[in-house]
Amino acid sequence: MTTGSSSPFSESGTLCANTEAGEDTEMKMNDMKTIFKYLRRVLYIKDVFPLDFRFLEFNSNQRYALIGDRLTYTMRTFKSFQAYFFLHCEWIMLSGALLAMAFLNPYENSQTLCLFEIAGVPFCPGEGFGRSIALLVRGEWVLSFQMHPLGIPGTMIILHRIYSIINRNQSIKLP
């Protein structure tokens, strides 16, 4: 029963033919802006170089152009990089340490992450903490507690700290 005139393909084809080139570029630009907005919301990025629309602009050739002179631009990107780094370095360290400890081999004392041991200090109070978390990940609660009693609460404390850092970063507005 379908006819050529009522099929969606022909309708969309006529719509495409009617639009002008200017509208098309505008639509593309808006799409890019919404994508960047969404990315910024997900990553909590406020002032980082490629996603910042205060310095960037679409010109007629659809390429990025700089607003303002070069020096202030580089200074501001450097400052915003600093702010970005100090916002995020702590939770990256904590989650990286958790991951590294989870992938240790808990049944041997061959691998070590301890910087005291690498530096040559004979005694370290954190002896067994990494292997304790590795045992916890493998589901052996009792052995984990025997290895280091702070393994289970320590994991919870670190996870809570990561959560609170992410909360803090949402509430801080960078200058």
Binding site: F86, E90, A97, C114, L115, P125, G126, F129, H148, G154
Partner: peptide, 29 residues
């Protein structure tokens, strides 16, 4: 931050890694 303070106290600052990151990060903390 008492919880993470106790954790650092009994593990030597996550075996010195956490201490070094805090040393870099002291102003924002």
């Amino acid at each position: 931050q008492i919880g993470i303070g106790i954790l650092y106290f009994f593990t030597g600052g996550l075996c010195l890694i956490g201490t070094i990151v805090d040393l870099i990060n002291y102003k924002s903390l």
